[in-house]
Lab assay of single mutants.
Amino acid sequence: DETGKFLVLALYDYQEKSPREVTAKKGDILTLLNSTNKDWWKVEVNGRQGFVPAAYVKFL
């Protein structure tokens, strides 16, 4: 159920650099879980949760 969740689009490829991050490919649609940090947003992609740089994604 996606009610109340926001989707964001990956603008660039991002390769995770730590276990707390997730890899995303340009064009991926990610479920935004938390955007309270202006630099790192928590997302879910391909069943995995983790952080990506906020500058790499935008709201749909």
Rank of each mutant, 00 (worst) to 15 (best):
D1R: 06
D1W: 14
D1S: 14
E2Y: 14
G4F: 14
G4C: 15
G4E: 12
G4A: 12
G4R: 13
K5A: 11
F6T: 14
F6Q: 12
L7W: 12
L7C: 14
L7K: 11
V8K: 00
V8D: 00
V8L: 15
L9G: 01
L11N: 01
L11V: 09
L11D: 01
Y12P: 00
Y12G: 04
Y12D: 07
D13K: 04
D13A: 06
Y14I: 06
Y14A: 01
Q15M: 14
Q15P: 06
Q15W: 13
Q15L: 13
E16T: 06
E16M: 11
E16L: 06
K17D: 05
S18H: 13
P19T: 09
P19A: 10
R20T: 13
R20N: 14
E21F: 07
E21R: 03
V22F: 12
V22Y: 03
T23W: 06
T23S: 15
T23Y: 04
T23M: 04
T23D: 03
T23E: 02
A24M: 15
K25Y: 10
K25I: 08
K25W: 08
K25N: 09
K25E: 08
K26L: 08
K26E: 08
K26W: 07
G27M: 03
G27I: 04
G27H: 05
D28S: 07
D28G: 04
D28W: 08
D28P: 03
D28N: 05
I29N: 01
I29Y: 06
L30Q: 01
L30W: 04
T31W: 11
T31E: 08
T31F: 11
T31H: 10
L33V: 09
L33C: 10
L33K: 02
L33W: 04
N34A: 08
N34H: 06
S35P: 07
S35H: 09
T36N: 11
N37K: 04
K38P: 14
K38I: 08
D39N: 12
W40G: 01
W40F: 05
W41L: 07
W41Y: 10
K42A: 08
K42V: 12
V43D: 00
E44G: 03
E44D: 08
V45H: 11
N46L: 07
N46V: 04
R48T: 06
R48E: 05
Q49P: 04
Q49G: 03
Q49W: 07
G50Y: 05
V52H: 01
V52R: 00
P53F: 11
A54W: 06
A54R: 11
A55Y: 09
A55S: 14
Y56F: 12
Y56P: 00
K58V: 15
K58L: 12
K58I: 14
F59L: 15
F59N: 07
F59Y: 10
F59M: 14
F59D: 07
L60V: 12
